[in-house]
Simulated assay, not measured.
Amino acid sequence: MGYHRRQEVNFTSVVEFVLLGFSDIPNLQTFLFVMFLIIYVIILIGNGVIILLTRVDQALQTPMYFFLSNLSFLEICYVSATLPLMLVNLWTSKGNILLFACAVQMCFVLMLGGTECLLLTVMAYDRYVAICYPLQYPLIMNHKVCSHLVVFSWLSGVPVEIGQTFQIFSLPFCGSNQINHFFCDIPPILRLACGDTYVNETLVFTVAVLFVLIPFVLILGSYKKIISTVWRLPSAAGRAKACSTCSSHITVVVLFFGSAIITYLRPTSQHYSRTDKFLSLFYTVATPLLNPMIYTLRNKDVMVALKKLVH
Results as ranks from 00 to 15, higher is better:
175 G>V: 15
192 L>R: 14
200 N>C: 09
165 T>A: 15
165 T>S: 04
187 P>F: 00
170 S>F: 06
164 Q>D: 12
170 S>W: 09
175 G>C: 13
175 G>S: 15
193 A>T: 15
189 I>T: 07
184 C>S: 10
191 R>V: 07
171 L>R: 15
173 F>C: 07
168 I>F: 05
186 I>Q: 04
181 H>V: 04
180 N>L: 11
178 Q>F: 08
170 S>E: 08
172 P>T: 07
189 I>S: 01
189 I>H: 12
196 D>C: 09
165 T>E: 06
174 C>V: 11
169 F>Q: 02
198 Y>F: 12
186 I>T: 03
195 G>C: 07
196 D>Y: 08
177 N>E: 08
195 G>P: 05
183 F>S: 00
168 I>D: 04
199 V>C: 11
193 A>I: 09
183 F>C: 01
165 T>L: 06
176 S>E: 08
193 A>K: 06
184 C>N: 04
179 I>G: 11
195 G>R: 13
188 P>Q: 01
194 C>N: 10
188 P>I: 00
190 L>I: 02
170 S>Q: 14
183 F>N: 00
193 A>S: 08
199 V>D: 04
199 V>L: 13
190 L>V: 02
165 T>D: 02
170 S>A: 10
168 I>A: 10
191 R>N: 09
191 R>I: 01
169 F>V: 06
174 C>L: 11
200 N>F: 00
167 Q>K: 11
180 N>Q: 12
174 C>F: 11
173 F>Q: 06
191 R>T: 12
191 R>M: 07
197 T>Q: 11
193 A>Q: 05
166 F>L: 14
173 F>E: 14
170 S>Y: 11
181 H>P: 01
172 P>I: 07
184 C>E: 00
173 F>R: 15
184 C>D: 00
177 N>D: 14
164 Q>S: 11
178 Q>W: 10
173 F>S: 06
194 C>Q: 11
184 C>V: 05
183 F>I: 01
179 I>F: 03
171 L>G: 13
176 S>A: 10
180 N>G: 03
180 N>T: 05
180 N>R: 10
190 L>W: 08
187 P>W: 00
189 I>N: 01
190 L>Q: 09
184 C>T: 03
197 T>M: 10
196 D>E: 09
164 Q>Y: 13
172 P>F: 08
168 I>L: 09
199 V>R: 08
180 N>H: 04
164 Q>T: 08
165 T>Q: 04
169 F>E: 00
183 F>G: 00
179 I>R: 03
166 F>R: 15
179 I>A: 02
191 R>Q: 04
170 S>K: 14
180 N>K: 01
177 N>A: 10
188 P>M: 08
196 D>P: 03
200 N>P: 06
167 Q>P: 07
190 L>T: 04
193 A>Y: 05
198 Y>Q: 12
176 S>W: 08
169 F>T: 05
164 Q>V: 09
200 N>K: 03
188 P>H: 09
173 F>I: 14
181 H>K: 06
181 H>M: 02
172 P>G: 02
195 G>W: 08
168 I>V: 10
190 L>A: 01
164 Q>N: 14
198 Y>M: 15
177 N>I: 01
181 H>C: 02
200 N>Y: 02
187 P>N: 04
164 Q>P: 13
200 N>D: 11
196 D>V: 06
191 R>E: 11
178 Q>N: 15
169 F>S: 06
181 H>D: 09
171 L>F: 15
173 F>M: 10
167 Q>G: 13
169 F>P: 06
179 I>D: 03
192 L>Y: 11
167 Q>E: 13
196 D>S: 05
199 V>I: 12
181 H>E: 02
